[in-house]
Design a binder for these strands. Structure first.
Length: 576
DNA sequence: GCCGTTTTCGGCCCGACTGTTTTCAGTCG
């Protein structure tokens, strides 16, 4: 997959040009191209120049550079630019609050090579002595920025950011004179990692709302405090922005603060062409008369578009789809009929199969699959063949009592490092659901680990590959699996791929899930529940699916029981 | 560097807040 590498090169290129004080529109072209390539569902390797030029934001020049990157792994222009621009300079850009101009000014006086050096200069007040336009405040801001970088105040996993934001929301609702109050930003788009928390409110007394916000108990530090906008750092380390607007601007502001930035730029450009000005206060005609903005729909309506769901607002084709009335009918939480990846106390879960079934029934689901670990995963008390057979008998007994609900017999079987599965086919054949997954040998070569997973998919009884890349957000990178190859074999064998809804995993991610759908691969959204409350994670999995443009028909566990099993067992007939 | 219901050249989204300045540049989203 060359896309992320090409995106990295373009993004680096943008930084270097930025530091050189280049034409800002040229810089933006590189940044935009990097975004588009990163989010592109297709692999650029193998695309022709004409195909590349059809990608929005890619013209003659960047198409050539992409071809060069695919072929050689880099491009001459980038290598040349990199030689001219010292590494220490782009390092400075990674500090929040420090932009290209200031970075350059600092570097001209102090050609530093590390963040540590910058910290010493700022702490020793040597910056303000030597660099124009830097005084005490700027030095303090730089030190604070360095602290943020060190604490990994970068992006937080969605599953960590959302509860923090909800906590702020409930405090504000309780204490502040707010009318409307809503989470915006990448959280509203359910992005898998969140940079900061954006909150939007309406109020008759914005001053007071600001006051209460910056004095919330969760707030550790106030970065900015204005009449309508304030920014704080929370004790937990995340940044949170609160913006208060008037009732009549709420929709326009919500659209604007939900982003993505690229999506907004598209909307505003479309507005300009139609003679409108769109900003966070509303939509204005040529005479400057406000013609809407109270509702988010207003913004889309003047552009002749239906409301685009926040999860799709990434400038990855959603506007073209909306224009031609081809937006997907996105999957919703209510479409889910069951969970196919659930652990009981027999392995490393905390509840009995019956307790889990009752909780699932309470959610209106029709089935769950009990998929305890196989014996290879000793750390999780994986089940031996004997215990597995006992569990099967127990589930049969439970099913005789349950009416209108089915507990499916399943397993999360280990794919061992020698490519074999941890249970014999005789046992697997007795099960409804076989989730195969890798829990060992994470550092194997791409070839080896990809081979393990594809070998598992060729087993007729393996219904699903679970958490296919093994990543843990913010903790562990994906193993070196070649997802292109995995998807190819999944399509060939009719094996389903899981979107694991566990917040630390979200694996498949949205981009790969969208690609899998395009290839006709059956997808499953599963929670990997270990305690009852984990069923709540289904909403994260559905969010990833929505970001991947999935409709109910793309997700197997929206089907009623028999149809679902028919899809997952079809490969038993084909592969024999 | 991209792009075309003004355009193959000349535009390119728009505004809030801060800090170091006396009118604005830099940064961010």
């Amino acid at each position: 997959m060359k896309n992320s590498e090409a995106a990295r090169i373009f993004s680096e290129m943008a930084n270097i040009l930025d530091l050189a004080g280049e034409n800002p529109f040229r810089i933006r072209a590189y940044r935009r191209a990097a975004m588009v390539i990163e989010g592109l569902p297709r692999d650029i390797a193998g695309m022709s120049k004409d195909e590349l030029k059809k990608i929005p934001g890619i013209g003659e020049d960047l198409a050539s550079k992409l071809l060069e990157i695919v072929e050689t792994g880099t491009c001459k222009a980038y290598e040349a630019a990199r030689r001219k621009s010292p590494a220490g300079l782009s390092l400075l850009l990674s500090i929040p609050g420090l932009g290209p101009k200031t970075a350059r000014a600092i570097y001209e006086k102090f050609p530093i090579g590390s963040i540590d050096e910058l910290e010493r200069l700022a702490a020793g007040h040597r910056l303000k002595a030597a660099v124009p336009k830097i005084k005490d405040k700027t030095e303090q801001n730089i030190l604070r920025g360095i602290e943020l970088v060190r604490k990994g105040a970068g992006r937080r996993p969605l599953g960590k950011a959302l509860p923090v934001a909800q906590d702020i929301i409930s405090h504000l609702r309780e204490k502040a004179p707010v009318k409307q109050l809503q989470i915006a930003g990448s959280l509203r788009r359910w992005k898998e990692t969140i940079g900061d928390i954006d909150i939007l409110a309406t109020s008759d007394d914005p001053e007071r709302v600001m006051d209460i916000f910056i004095h919330l108990p969760q707030v550790k530090q106030v970065l900015a405090r204005g009449d309508t906008k304030s920014t704080v750092i929370l004790a937990e380390g995340m940044q949170a922005d609160l913006r208060v607007v008037e009732e009549g601007s709420f929709g326009a502001a919500l659209c604007y603060f939900t982003g993505s930035k690229e999506h907004n730029i598209r909307l505003r450009e479309m507005g300009v062409k139609r003679g409108f000005k769109i900003n966070e206060y509303g939509i204005f005609d040529k005479k400057g008369k406000k013609i809407g903005g109270g509702k988010e729909e207003d913004v889309y309506r003047v552009l002749g578009l239906p409301l685009i769901p926040p999860e799709l607002r990434e400038d990855s084709g959603e506007i073209a789809a909306a224009l031609s009335d081809k937006l997907p009918k996105l999957i919703e939480l209510d479409d889910i009929r069951g969970d196919l990846h659930v652990h009981t106390k027999l392995s490393d879960g905390h509840n009995t199969a019956l307790e889990l079934a009752e909780a699932a029934i309470a959610r209106g689901w029709a089935y769950i699959a009990v998929t305890d670990h196989s014996k290879g995963l000793g750390i999780a008390r994986g089940l031996s063949v004997e215990r597995m057979l006992e569990e099967i008998a127990e589930i049969d007994a439970l099913n005789r009592k349950l009416k209108g609900f089915r507990i499916l017999k399943g397993v999360e079987v280990d794919i061992r490092s020698d490519n074999t599965l941890d249970l014999p086919d005789e046992v697997l054949s007795k099960l409804d659901i076989v989730n195969a997954s890798v829990h060992s040998g994470f550092r194997q070569t791409s070839e080896k680990i990809t081979g393990r997973i594809t070998a598992a998919m060729r087993n007729p009884f393996v219904t699903t590959i679970s958490h296919p890349t093994g990543r843990l957000l913010g903790e562990r990178d994906a193993y070196q699996v070649d997802m292109e190859e995995v998807l190819r074999v999944a399509a060939d064998t009719g094996t389903a791929i899981e979107i694991n809804a566990f917040p630390a995993r979200l694996d498949l991610n949205d981009i790969t899930a969208r690609k899998a759908r395009d290839m006709g691969i059956p997808l499953v959204i599963s929670t990997d529940t270990h305690i009852l409350e984990h069923f709540d994670y289904m909403s994260y999995g559905v969010a990833i699916a929505r970001r991947a443009w999935l409709e109910p028909k793309d997700v197997v566990n929206t089907f009623e029981l028999n149809k679902m099993l028919e899809v997952l067992h079809k490969k038993r007939l084909i592969l024999k």
